[in-house]
Amino acid sequence: MRSSSSSLPTAFCFAGQGSQYYHMAADLLNTDAVFRQWMEIGDRIVQDAQGFSPLAAIHDDARSRADAFDHLEHSHPSLFMVQFAAAKMLQARGLRPDLLVGVSLGEFVAMSLAGMIPFETALKAVADQPKTFRKTCQPGALIAALAPPSIRDASPLLRERTEIAGINAERHCVLACEAENTGAVSDELRRLDTPFQALPVPFAFHSRWIDGAEDTFLQAVSDLRFETPFWPVWSCCLGRPVQAADGPLLWRIVRDRMQLQATFAAIEADGGAHYVDLSPTGTFVAVLRQDLRRSSTSKISPLMSPFGGDLKRLDALCGEKA
């Protein structure tokens, strides 16, 4: 079954670090057997490999949704599992993708769902990444700003202490900086009257401040082997579909700038899509509302939200009665 916009291809969209929160997808876990099955499979894999339970971390009763889910060792595999399980749930209900779109960590989800790398192999690799950054990188930060990338040109402080980690839309970018500069950068954005949000991420991914991890990262993924995808996997690192993957590409996915705007522009130029946002926070909905032209026939459907309503959106998305 395709989306309700039958002339449009269905695009499953997977987000990266920053879109996670405690108790995400709780209603789906408690209600949908397929979603729960994949979460439990992933939980066993991570427990065996890393010695902790992502399910216990996500649904920690001592934490609220307002608390920052920023312990990378926990959030990295948890975010991968939730988005992968959500995609499997939709497929089981008859909604299947024609293409996949991934950004940052979401690209690993998309590759695995497309059959390029087995679920267990991908999840173990993702769960193993945090120790690499912990050993080789200084703490950093990512800050989403409702501003064009040119905001750095307006401020010597931003030019000196930040890099553009991602360009999401004409007026939506992500800044990377060292952790010690987070306060100064935040104060400068306030001075420039720029709305912003610090993401729950402990390192400055997609910037020079993680360059120290490159050799260790490449060594850790040197044995991974990739198959040809059976759905097109659009990479927001490359701004186009992935033709083949290897260790150096995986490094580029975490190191190079995220190019959501350019990627969605290329998909739109190819006729657009029904974008099914499988990020826990509806990341792509906010971005696409800025990116899509008024003349676009594309459709955007979120699934999850920190504010609830996941089951109603699931029923509406799969054509069932809400």
Rank of each mutant, 00 (worst) to 15 (best):
M1V: 11
R2W: 11
S3L: 13
S3D: 15
S4C: 09
S6R: 07
S6P: 14
F12C: 06
F12T: 04
S19A: 14
S19C: 04
Q20R: 01
M24D: 05
L29P: 12
R44M: 13
R44C: 14
I45S: 13
S53Q: 09
S53M: 09
A56K: 04
A57K: 06
I58Q: 04
R65C: 11
R65L: 06
R65K: 12
A66N: 15
D67T: 00
H71G: 11
H71T: 08
E73P: 05
H76Q: 13
H76G: 01
V82R: 07
V82L: 10
M89H: 05
G94Q: 08
L99V: 02
L100M: 05
G106N: 03
V109R: 06
V109G: 03
S112K: 07
L113D: 03
L113A: 07
G115H: 08
I117F: 05
I117D: 00
P118D: 12
F119C: 10
A125N: 13
A125K: 13
D128Y: 00
F133G: 01
C137P: 08
A144K: 02
A147I: 11
P149K: 03
S150A: 08
D153F: 05
L158Q: 00
L158G: 01
I164M: 09
I164W: 05
G166H: 00
V174T: 02
E180Q: 03
N181F: 07
T182P: 04
D187T: 01
E188I: 02
R190K: 09
L192W: 03
T194N: 00
P195W: 12
Q197T: 10
A198D: 13
V201S: 12
H206E: 06
R208G: 15
D211I: 08
D215Q: 14
T216M: 01
F217E: 06
A220E: 08
S222Q: 05
D223K: 14
R225A: 12
F230K: 11
W231K: 05
V233P: 00
V233N: 00
S235Q: 08
S235T: 09
S235F: 12
C236H: 02
C237I: 04
L238W: 02
R240S: 10
A244Y: 08
A245F: 11
D246E: 11
D246Y: 00
L250Q: 11
R252G: 14
R252V: 10
D256H: 09
R257V: 06
A262Y: 02
A265M: 10
A265E: 15
A266Y: 00
L278F: 08
G282P: 07
A286L: 14
R293I: 14
K299C: 15
I300G: 00
S301D: 13
P306G: 09
G308W: 05
G309F: 07
L311I: 11
K312G: 12
R313K: 06
L317Q: 04
K321D: 08
